[in-house]
């Protein structure tokens, strides 16, 4: 995974509270292999009326093509641990999601795929939604934790551990392998102190 610290991209506004992981990708699509591309599953049912794409849904509107920043509302990505929710966003081109609160497992999954979950205040979320009546290009500055578009300049927060990881594009497995000795020692401690953990 490549690290990044600056992102510029077209942003769309999805001012709907509680877009949960079941909306992001309905369960019935999750048996598909990733190689197929998960973009077609993103918000599959929400963006349709019956079997047809709803032309009024923000992601379906003219001008939303190629968007890479999603400005969302409270409790985005709440619900299940399905990383497929992030795969759907990623494969559809999204690299940043901005919201006043996120499901915690979703945030972790996002960062593990190089997608930034940027936390903003309710007021700033409102300002962004207002500015995005039409899709607009936003500049996301991960070094300084700011989101800018023309006159607009709002701060966001992200857990510092997650921020460092995004910037460096760290892969946890690689990092952890450098602690192999600590882990082996810890295993001995567990075997001595809580031997019942190991099953025959």
């Amino acid at each position: 995974m490549a690290g990044w610290s600056q992102h510029e991209g077209l942003a769309v506004s999805l001012p709907v509270e509680g877009v949960d992981t079941d909306q992001l990708i309905p369960a019935r699509f999750m048996s598909a292999p990733r190689s197929e591309g998960y973009d077609k599953f993103l918000l599959h049912d929400m963006r349709r009326k019956g079997d047809e794409l709803d032309p009024d849904f923000p992601l379906n509107r003219d001008g939303a093509d190629g968007a890479s920043v999603l400005v969302a509302a409270r409790n985005f990505g709440g619900g299940s641990s399905r990383e497929a929710a992030v795969y759907a966003l990623y494969d559809a081109g999204f690299r940043v999601v901005i919201a006043p609160s996120f499901g915690d497992i979703f945030s972790g999954n996002a960062v593990n795929n190089g997608v930034l979950p940027a936390l903003v205040s309710e007021t700033d979320a409102e300002r962004l939604h207002t500015a995005l009546a039409e899709p607009v290009t936003l500049h996301v500055d991960l070094d300084n934790c700011r989101i800018r578009a023309g006159e607009l300049d709002v701060p966001f927060t992200i857990d510092p551990v997650r921020r460092t990881k995004l910037i460096n594009g760290w892969d946890d497995i690689d990092l952890t392998q450098s602690h192999a000795e600590d882990i082996a020692k810890f295993r001995e401690r567990v075997a001595a102190e809580r031997p019942w953990i190991f099953l025959d």
């Binding site: 641990s81 497992i105 972790g108 999954n109 593990n112 857990d159 946890d172 497995i173 602690h179 882990i183």
Partner: peptide, 20 residues
Amino acid sequence: FGIGATEVAHVLSTQTVWQV
């Protein structure tokens, strides 16, 4: 606690998980 697929792969291969 629940974890995502990247973390599942991490636990499978290292028996550990990073958390704050």
